[in-house]
């Protein structure tokens, strides 16, 4: 961590006053006159710093407080308490100056004008953000190169596919060359190719302009391909903040070995590997999968035993996927290990 982080967040909280709705028609009538409220801490005393040029993934189950955090960082919401200092600005207090230094993309919503050609939106955004014509032309040229948006600049936004629209939204968010980019689920609903396109662009932007990127996502491939650092939030608290590799190191418990047997004669031999904490499944007639806890069983020992017992044509050792890990964290099974 350098001495001067780009984003500085300390003890940040956001409480919402929620209204307990009564059920049924009689309940609705009561709701008209009497309302009971309770306070919900959507974000609860979180703190972190992010350096210039970092790409950070911010994940958590639905309702964990991700969006609320992003909305406070972008100046949309006023925090209940705590400090935010980004690039020398307090977002909600110096909103108009601050938003000139950030780009924001909400995957679920477009910021382009729905009914008119994409280029018209870009032109108006150029005026709103006071970008010079020269910078504008230069950047549009560059966006065309990496995003390939030239072909549909004249199409109305409502006629674009989701992938095309997302590319345009990204270009729109970067038109004023902000040092900081917030992405809220940038790949939601996209197909594999479109996702790859967006990731490629984000990597290029990060490399070329040293743009700092904070992204929320439900697609862990986004994180694996883009971010070195990961923050996990749940119930408004940060559960984990650190390198992705370290999280894996700490949490990957289960490993699996897939073996493709040489012939049917070996099936009897493999069946012994369903004891002593090993889990054996048959994938197809000759392929078997053995899962085990790597903290209890040494992988090399197990391989040696397998090779001694049966003749195999192929052997494949796999880690538990990051999805599985995150699923365990969300389910509250791994809270202790995460916060070590």
């Amino acid at each position: 961590m350098s001495a001067d982080p780009l984003i500085h967040v300390k003890d940040l909280s956001k409480h919402f006053r929620a209204f307990d709705r009564r059920e049924g028609i009689w309940g609705s009538i009561q709701n008209l006159f009497v309302r009971d409220y309770h306070t919900v801490a959507a974000v609860d005393r979180i703190g972190f710093t992010i350096d210039r040029g970092e790409m950070v993934g911010y994940i958590g189950p639905n309702g964990a407080g991700k969006s609320t955090t992003i909305k406070m960082l972008t100046g949309i919401l006023v925090p209940t308490s705590g400090e935010i200092l980004i690039n020398g600005f307090v977002p909600f207090r110096q909103r108009r100056q601050y938003v000139k230094t950030i780009g924001v993309v909400f995957g679920q919503r477009t910021q382009l004008w729905w009914d008119i050609a994409v280029i018209e939106s870009f032109k108006l955004l150029r005026r709103i953000y006071d970008v010079s014509q020269r910078d504008f032309d230069e950047r549009m040229e560059r966006f065309n190169e990496i995003l390939g948006i030239r072909d549909y600049l004249r199409t109305p936004v409502r006629k674009l596919s989701l992938g095309e629209r997302m590319r345009c939204d990204l270009a729109a968010a970067l038109l004023h060359n902000p040092p900081l980019l917030f992405l809220d689920e940038p790949t939601i609903g996209l197909d594999v190719v479109a996702k790859e396109h967006i990731r490629h662009f984000l990597r290029a932007v990060n490399r070329e302009f040293r743009t700092t990127v904070l992204l929320t996502t439900h697609d862990l491939d986004d994180i694996e391909e883009l971010c070195h650092r990961l923050m996990i939030i749940d119930h408004g608290r940060v559960l984990y903040d650190g390198p992705l590799d370290q999280l894996k190191e700490r949490l990957l418990r289960t490993k699996q070995i897939k073996c493709v047997l040489k012939d049917r004669a070996q099936v009897a031999g493999i069946s012994v590997f369903s004891r002593d904490g090993l889990v054996l499944d048959q994938v197809d007639p000759l392929t078997y999968r053995i899962r085990f806890d790597r903290t209890k069983v040494a992988t090399t020992d197990l391989i040696r035993k397998i090779l001694a017992a049966v003749e195999v044509r192929d052997l494949l050792i796999e880690d538990e996927s990051i999805e599985e890990v995150v699923k365990r964290i969300y389910a509250g099974e791994a809270t202790f290990e995460v916060s070590l």
Partner: peptide, 13 residues
């Protein structure tokens, strides 16, 4: 509908 989000993200009143 939450359209005010987008309004607040622009450097204009």
């Amino acid at each position: 509908e939450g359209k005010f989000d987008r309004v607040l993200l622009r450097p204009v009143s």
